[in-house]
């Protein structure tokens, strides 16, 4: 919203197109991050790596996406609601990722290594030495 105010000050003639292009860039960046996270969710070999792919991209994806949509809506009540949704997801996405990792560790799920998940604990200690 601060960006849109700056653009209103700078350009009067093609204000809408600049805002549309900026919003489109933000939307596409957010959506590409979401798709990248989903590809990682499918392709990665282990639960913890999948959680890395999904949980890390989720927050920035939401930020870019809701930023782009807020530029589309303009300075209205809808942008304030989008900001509320973004703030909520900014706090809940890392929290749920942490709870999920804690539950998986408590449930006895071992991290993946190259030699297989059976000797995971010993191999991770050796990997830390080397």
């Amino acid at each position: 919203m601060a960006v849109s105010g700056m653009l209103v000050l700078t350009g009067k003639g093609n204000k809408m197109t600049v805002l549309d292009i900026l919003s489109g860039i933000l939307l596409l960046a957010g959506c590409s991050l979401g798709v990248i996270g989903a590809i990682g969710l499918i392709r990665f070999p282990d639960f913890y790596t999948r959680m890395h792919a999904a949980g890390v991209t989720d927050t920035l994806c939401a930020g870019l996406f809701f930023g782009g949509l807020a530029i589309q809506f303009g300075l209205t009540l809808a942008s304030a609601k989008l900001l509320l949704i973004f703030l909520f997801m900014l706090f809940t996405c890392p929290t749920s990722s942490h709870a999920l990792a804690k539950a998986a560790r408590h449930g006895g799920l071992e991290p993946w290594t190259k030699t297989g998940s059976g000797a995971a604990h010993n191999m991770s200690q050796e990997g830390a030495k080397s």
Binding site: L41, A54, G55, D58, F65, I85, A103, A104
Partner: peptide, 24 residues
């Protein structure tokens, strides 16, 4: 594992929120 399913459904719910805002 069950945690993979929970993670995937969490991601699905997040994307659903984004889809609802797009519909708006």
């Amino acid at each position: 594992t069950i945690y993979d399913r929970i993670l995937a459904i969490n991601l699905f719910g997040t994307k659903t929120v984004m889809l609802i805002t797009l519909i708006a």
